[in-house]
Design a binder for these strands. Structure first.
Lengths: 210, 210
DNA sequence: TTCCCATTGTAACCTTTGTTACAGCATAGT
DNA sequence: ACTATGCTGTAACAAAGGTTACAATGGGAA
């Protein structure tokens, strides 16, 4: 039994299920910025996150992106789940935000376990619940907040996910994920700096705790 | 056995489950504009739609609204499901868009059936799937589309749901649901009329098929 | 060192959306 | 018929966000 699996999922699943996961699952290490799932791909297995973080992105018809949410340890991709069951193509892109460890579970097993293990069922329901709540929050952000507020929230989220108050990214990168233009981001970041909330450097932004 | 139940769910559930639903469910008729679920309420039962339509709305801290999606025959409210399992307060408002018939299922039964009936489990998963797809579409609308496109889509959706090419509503009403102001809606509607897509009247808008 | 290129800063301008104000009109109730 | 009220149309203006253009800078590659 891989210890990390136990650490992340031991409190959720009974030993028998953990053993099964250990046996049928494929353990994977993916580096930062690795694309795990691409839009339009068929999905043949479902990921359980052990460590690291994954960002989930939506794309419009022009190829412009929008960050939906992050997944962390103990999470799974409900969108994938959903696509597996429906046998449809992925509607999202999933990219490693950090170096990430995960176990891939074949679809077949997933369905089997749904009937067999109560804890698995609960996990799946809880995952759906969490993802729906995240999507509601995303909708709140884009529908109710202005770009400067969204930007600040984005920076706070990044710091939380990476556990690092220095955000290693470019203005262009941020613009993609918030679905706006680089100039707008530069303008708003400059304002945030004037307000003393951040310090701007080349290729990184420092979030000031004040 | 209530015939309408069989019509709407007969192809999904086995006879035994239908019988159970028929016995423990409470059948309800609600008139148009009736509020079924209010934000912050605890939820004690789960609705299955038999006929009519329900609109699901999100609200921000200022009380401003945003339409998320519609539910129709054969749908259930995944948000409710989610709240039931998590024992949390409702994050959304549900309002009858038309006169609507539904069956209310007690939470207790819901959980029992999840273990007992495969068809119920599949229904629940499918409902989550559908709702996630609807929310993705909502995100696309607000993130990627301009207000005039969103407005046109809104009108098309209304016509589809109500099966009536005359939309009985006011500009103010539309403004609430799209989270903008009445003046903006009046302006954009006037443009759509100039483009020959609609005909504006007092208290109603006619969608022209052309 | 020198050059190149990605990144950032900034100005000027445009479009879209939001706000305020007010007039005209239809309809229901008196 | 008269009035109050809600609905719609429109103008004028403000604010937010998007676009284009270009300069400055820093760091890596040759």
């Amino acid at each position: 039994m891989i210890q990390e699996l136990k650490n992340s999922y031991g409190h959720l699943f009974e030993t028998e299920l953990l053993e099964e996961i250990n046996q049928v699952g494929t353990f994977k290490d993916v580096p930062q910025d690795f694309t795990l799932i691409e839009i339009g791909e068929y999905i043949k297995s479902m990921p359980l996150l052990i460590s690291g973080a994954i960002k989930v992105l939506r794309e419009d018809h022009d190829g412009d992106e929008l960050l939906l949410y992050f997944l962390e340890r103990g999470d799974t991709c409900a969108m994938t789940l959903s696509c597996c069951l429906g046998q449809t193509k992925s509607k999202i892109r999933a990219v490693a935000e950090l170096d990430t460890k995960l176990v891939m579970i074949p679809i077949r097993k997933m369905e089997e376990w749904t009937g067999k293990y109560r804890s698995w069922r609960n996990f799946v329901f809880e995952s759906y619940h969490n993802r729906i709540m995240e999507m509601l929050e995303t909708i709140d952000n884009i529908a109710f907040m202005k770009m400067d507020e969204r930007l600040l929230k984005y920076l706070l989220d990044k710091v939380k996910i990476t556990q690092d108050s220095i955000i290693h990214t470019t203005h262009q990168e941020i613009a993609y994920e918030l679905h706006t233009s680089r100039v707008v981001i530069s303008r708003l970041l400059k304002n945030l700096e004037k307000l003393g909330k951040i310090k701007l450097n080349r290729n990184n932004i420092v979030l000031l705790s004040s």
